[in-house]
Amino acid sequence: MLRALLAVIATIIHSVLVFGLAPLLMGIVSKARARLLGRTGPPYLQPYRDLAKLLRKTALIPDTATQFYKIWPFITLSATAVAALLVPSFSFGLITAPLSDFITLIGLFALARGATMLAGLETGFGFGGAGAARDTLFSLFTEAAVLVLVLTFVLLAHTPTVDGIGIQFRDGHIGLSVSLGFAFAAMLCVALTETGRIPVDNPAGHLELGMVHEAMLLEYSGRYLALFYYAAALRLMIWMSLISAIFLPFGLADSSAMLTWPGGLVSWGVKLIIGAFALAAFEVATAKMRVFRVPEFLGVALLLGILSSVFLFVATKLGGT
């Protein structure tokens, strides 16, 4: 009973933090990036201001939009939000932990992506369609790569939930292995693509021909655009938390042990900040790719994922299990 209560409390804290801090994380990345480029950059809280501004603006509905125009942002945001509830942040053992099967998570991302793509096709103008088409192309490889990574995780942790995998990796003395190294690299590639960062996509760019995610939102404005923006921020948050929970699970708390929570919070926060800076540094150091080079990039990720499984098979074979 107490455990359940604690889990509920931890989940509430998790939700508040994740939903509340997602724009901030975006702000940190932008700031860090600007700094690395030698500019002052926007304030850390700029994303909040943007969102507030968008909420107040009149929504301009294109005349070619259909009845579903307003529904897609809701679906995108809700699916992302549910995903955010499933991925542990500072603590494992959230009340949603049993639901957090990795494949469900992939499905939710796909749902959000599907709604965004439909939003792009909604008004029937070229850029939205082009963006959706490119997003489909990228998603082929990311989904394949993630599924192969899931295999690695499940084989190591013997559980399919994100929560369980994190706990196993934290407590299970998995140690460093070649497999996990490959998996980490692959996961990073996938995360960069899924969150629409350089080198795959440029969240700050506004050159239509090269855009993917932003291109699909071109016809959205006002509060509907705010929903998409917020969902994007949330997605960054989720992926950072996910990577931290799986690959850097040390220090994260358990919901049943309240005393570990502060430690978990700190560790999570530090990891997010480091992640944000690392991302910024990476983005500054690399150039955006041409669209048709992305599949090659993601193909490498897929290959790394498969290699990680293969190495695992070889290791277990050698280990005699």
Binding site: A52, L55, R56, K57, T58, A59, L60, I61, P62, D63, T64, A65, F74, L77, S78, A81, T123, F125, G126, F127, E208, L218, E219, G222, R223, A226, L227
Partner: peptide, 23 residues
Amino acid sequence: GATYAALKRYGTKAEREVHAFNG
């Protein structure tokens, strides 16, 4: 629901039909 409520609570309801931006 929460999103909808938040939009209702914090956002404006103003909408205008316009010609699509279309780049």
